[in-house]
Design a binder for these strands. Sequence first.
DNA 1: AATTGCATCAACCGCCCAGGC
DNA 2: GGCCTGGGCGGTTGATGCAAT
Length: 352
Amino acid sequence: MGRAPCCDKANVKKGPWSPEEDAKLKAYIEEHGTGGNWIALPQKIGLKRCGKSCRLRWLNYLRPNIKHGGFSEQEDQIICSLYISIGSRWSIIAAQLPGRTDNDIKNYWNTRLKKKLLGKRRDSPQSRRLSINQDTNEETNGISPDASSQALSTSALERMQLHMQLQGLYNPFSFYNNPALWPKFHPLGDKVSPIQQTDANTIAATPVQQASDATMIEPSGQNLLPIKPNMPNPMNAYIHEDRNTSTLGFPSPSSSRTTLSMDNFNTNFNAAAVGLEDELHDLLYGKNECFGRQDKQQQTAMECFKDMNGEKESMNWWATNGFDDKSSAGTWDFASNLQPDLLQEYGLGYDL
DNA sequence: AATTGCATCAACCGCCCAGGC
DNA sequence: GGCCTGGGCGGTTGATGCAAT
């Protein structure tokens, strides 16, 4: 048979933790550890709390070296980079930010960072046509928000918006700025078939991609930063999906298994990281701040990503997040780990 | 001063997965 | 192989505080 029930839900206390409860829990764990069993822990120390609640309290609040609030500029960028690439995998994102908890990052993203990024373009007519305004339920590209939300998850939509912002910020030919391209890519237009049936390795450059190779002309006459043709996606090899269905609700492609060598991944990742980080910084803090802070910014970004690619830390990271290569002889199974919605996003403008 | 609306964040809920039985 | 549980995770809720009216 299985194990004993988790806890007696009728007799557990809910709501905010008192200082006494905190002290009990902290003292016990600091002395004895969790004992590998959160469920039994509250009974041992006389707390009328669910084991899961104890675990959450410890991890999010009582654990040593926890930082609250005051997110730095570079933390913002790391969060954004990772969110765009892997979505709301808060535990993975938190693993890259020492002292931060997944709950903290999740709250920070939902309450501030998301608005900071998505709000940038909301006022423009073009963005209004394409953006999904979840607060007001306003029409989106002539299609009801209800229908849109059925086709794409919130997370995928947000990430798509962010992608389009990054891609289209300085690019009048991009998908984002080119209504002629919208129906083809609209989630309701052709939401699955090209992706489901296409090998991850054979997705060709889209018209958007080709257009983005052209020299950029800024219609508004603003100063231009040089667009980065074929802006690589630093995370295209970073994507890991270990669930059977994507956020779109479609099964992940399981045929056509493609492998990606770690050497190639590291090279692509490092090269692309700088580009994406710069673009993100432009979005978050404005173009002007680019000048004079670029060296530091790039260094920061590279340090972050270097950690992932480096030695000891990176191996922990890879192992923790499913990239352990024990079973794949130093390669990462690209196709079997890739989400269709991510494929769709990256198929819009980036090389795969 | 009272009311309303908004922002923040700690905590809970429900689901999934790995592993014990 | 199937059932059950603990651990972990992401999404959501509700309490609280602050700002605007």
